[in-house]
Design a protein around this nucleic acid. Structure first.
Lengths: 198, 198
DNA sequence: CGGCTACTATGACCACTGTCATAGCCGGTG
DNA sequence: CACCGGCTATGACAGTGGTCATAGTAGCCG
């Protein structure tokens, strides 16, 4: 699932994201991150002199970039790209995971927002940046599909909002129902946004 | 904002919800809850022999009931109830708060889900129950407005998902943009769901 | 060889948490 | 008055957290 043989630094960032996804920021310990990454504990203070805050911020940034990069893959997987199809793929990544390995993990950016939005300004900004680097490719993809420029941003926000909320509900219920619901209900609306002059 | 003169027990549950909303479950201490509720620390073990878990679960339940009860108020505030109007009111509760007192707080149910879904089964179930007691009144309201029965549940889920996600993004960005966006984009879709035979 | 840099290894510190044990208050009732 | 239940008050405990200090290793350069 993840490249386990990268530098230890990268592994720790990745592990931090994984653990934050599962337990939230506050419940994730530094020692735990090092152990999960099979990295020496002493490396934490070496690679992340900024402490836990720096590690969390990098994990959040990593998650944002990951989500943004997935968009291109989703598009490539679609025979004929449509907004609704893209959203269905975004949702499917979650339903696939939940059905395959269970409901252990949520979105790390959401976790960081919930846990740090008020207490840690830098992390809050990292989360906002992550949402932006995620929404950017989505909006561009919508534009490429023929959605008018003035609506791409709003629809991208709607897609990400619905997805995040559905992930939350799905995790609480341990059921992918909410995810499937938003995909089904939102698909037609998204497809209807492509201007017919194409 | 809240009835400050209820029993100490109720005040503690309410304070717990407030603090969880702000900092997440893990970062909210029991002593902090007692202090915030102006309640004696010794009362914690008296009223909540189940410890923190019980307190958190009750706070989540309280939040779910609160959200469910708000629905009736929103409907009463609308001259002519429509699905899009109801959703706009639900969103407006958040934009009003954020513009009035800042972006300190999110949804306590979301916070509990993020922090406890994997670690504490009972809290996860409490969160699922809270979402259900919230979605119920929403779905019933949609039905009363003429939405076909077979779609009310799905649309309620869509509304709550989008709202939760938008709250998350708004908090990260410290901007109500996402909230306004989902309200604007989803309104027409919701209104279009009322069957015309009415 | 010495010296330097990158990284690793541990142990200690201090702040704090949830929980428990114990004791005290205080208003009723008999 | 004695008694007792509901509630409060505090101190202690054991555990865990992030962080710092210090020392060690490995490898390259000169």
């Amino acid at each position: 699932m993840a490249p386990s043989d990268r530098g230890p630094r990268e592994r720790m960032v990745f592990s931090a994201a994984q653990l934050i996804r599962r337990d939230g920021v506050a419940s994730t310990g530094m020692r735990e991150v090092a152990a999960h990454a099979a990295a020496p504990r002493g490396s934490l203070q070496h690679y992340f002199p900024g402490g836990k805050e720096q590690l969390v911020n990098e994990a959040v940034g990593w998650a944002g970039r990951y989500a943004g990069n997935r968009v291109a893959r989703f598009l490539a997987a679609l025979p004929e790209p449509t907004p609704g199809g893209l959203f269905a793929e975004m949702v499917r990544q979650w339903t696939d995971e939940y059905e395959a390995v269970g409901f252990a993990g949520g979105c790390p950016v959401a976790a960081a927002t919930v846990d740090c939005a008020e207490s840690t300004a830098a992390t809050r900004e990292a989360a906002a940046a992550a949402f932006a680097t995620w929404a950017g490719p989505v909006a561009r993809a919508l534009a490429d599909m023929g959605v008018p420029e003035e609506r791409t941003g709003a629809l991208a926000t709607l897609m990400i909002s619905s997805l995040e909320g559905a992930v939350l509900i799905a995790r609480a219920e341990r059921d992918v129902r909410a995810l499937n619901t938003v995909a089904r209900e939102l698909g037609p609306l998204l497809d209807a946004a492509v201007s017919k002059a194409d």
